[in-house]
């Protein structure tokens, strides 16, 4: 079965639609969403509707999703805080109920999913250090763990000596997954990539071939940016779609 893993959509409808077009061509049968469906961009309702209607969708919650429910985003910048409040105003009860139903992590056969890490997922830590990746790997028996949160597509694996190593995946090149090894794949971000590449990022997992493939999909981010500028959201969010930079 081909499973598409999407993360950090952040209300970017155009990016999500572009990814869905690509997944349709690839023959994806099931979707996993790794949270942060809302925040930053101006289409939270349409994005949530689309996510909720994806075939076989299973999802976990992200820190932005949780913040929308609580109306409070601790340690966030003021513009991000305002975006949370603005997003909350757009959502109906149906949408908030869906977000409320999302778990912090989930396991499907030999794969595990979380937004930030499987180790204390509610702490939303950013996985950069090998020790953090090791903690995440040790929190599950699953062969491969899919994460988002950092917006940077990357693949961690344990090498011949059991040390955590990383590789920057090449777009469209399948990477074989072996049962006896452990992998942590950060699928990048659909709606706000931060690796200098403005194209939306997602991963496809082929359970029959035991392969994962990272994909990038170009989309019209000027349209998304225009919507942000026409709303009450901070203009920085629009600029960031083009810059795709980690820092503003």
């Amino acid at each position: 079965m081909k499973i598409a893993i999407l993360s950090d959509i952040h209300s970017n409808l155009e990016a999500l639609q572009a990814c869905c077009r690509k997944t349709k061509i690839l023959g994806v049968e099931q979707y996993i969403c790794l949270g942060d469906i809302v925040g930053y961009c101006a289409d939270p309702v349409a994005t949530l509707e689309l996510v909720m209607n994806l075939p076989g969708i299973v999802a976990v919650c992200g820190n932005h999703d949780k913040a929308v429910l609580s109306g409070n985003f601790p340690n966030a910048r003021e513009s991000v805080q305002q975006a949370i409040v603005w997003t909350r105003r757009q959502l109906s009860e149906k949408h908030t109920d869906f977000i409320r139903s999302l778990p912090y992590s989930l396991h499907l056969q030999n794969i595990a999913c979380a937004h930030a890490s499987l180790y204390n997922p509610e702490q939303w830590q950013y996985l950069y250090q090998p020790d953090q990746v090791r903690q995440c790997m040790d929190a599950t028996q699953a062969t491969i763990t899919f994460l988002g949160h950092t917006h940077l597509p990357i693949l961690y694996y344990d090498n011949a000596m059991g040390r955590i190593k990383l590789m920057t995946p090449q777009e469209g090149i399948p990477v074989p997954i072996y049962q006896q090894r452990r992998y942590v794949a950060n699928v990048g971000s659909v709606g706000q990539p931060r690796d200098g590449n403005s194209a939306a990022s997602f991963v496809m997992y082929d359970s029959e071939l035991a392969e994962i493939t990272f994909y990038r999909v170009a989309y019209d981010f000027t349209k998304t940016a225009k919507k942000i500028l026409e709303s009450d959201l901070a203009s920085d969010f629009a600029k960031r779609l083009a810059d795709s930079a980690w820092e503003f």
Binding site: N159, M161, K165, M167, Q170, V175, Y183
Partner: peptide
């Protein structure tokens, strides 16, 4: 070069 290298940083084992 496009796949995870199992011997990376474990060269003595290769």
């Amino acid at each position: 070069t496009l796949m995870p290298d199992m011997y990376i940083d474990s060269h003595e084992m290769a």
